[in-house]
Amino acid sequence: MREEIIVRVGAKILTPFIIMFALYVHFHGDYSPGGGFQAGVILAAAFALLALVYGLGAVQRVLPPWFTRLCAALGVVIYGGVGVVTMLLGHNYLGYNALAHDPEHGQHYGILLVELGVLVTVFGVMASVFYLFAGRGRRDS
């Protein structure tokens, strides 16, 4: 019992740090290794950890499967949408220079946005896939 409490508390304390680390990885991707993909993976891992400790049901109440599924789709739309926007602004697809007056800012915004798309999708997908595998096992027993 006591160990379980330790684990629970540990997980609870750890989770915000993991999420913060994920965000760091995401936003610091311009300067150091990392980016949307790695951040998405870490973020999903945080919830997987919670699920392992508190059970799948508890986590799915906070983060329901429909939401992760939505995220998985949303990220792709964000990424593709950036391209559509640049196209509407008169540039080619994914021509980030369209997003601001000077190319450098445009590129920054563009990269930020598409990385966000990657983050959202990867998080959504990883969480969904985890739910599906874990969920199937639970019903089995």
């Binding site: 599924r69 939505l70 998985a72 789709a73 949303l74 792709v76 739309v77 593709g80 949408g81 559509v84």
Partner: peptide, 9 residues
Amino acid sequence: LLAAPICAV
């Protein structure tokens, strides 16, 4: 490609 995620939700 963009119609696909919309279909999925």
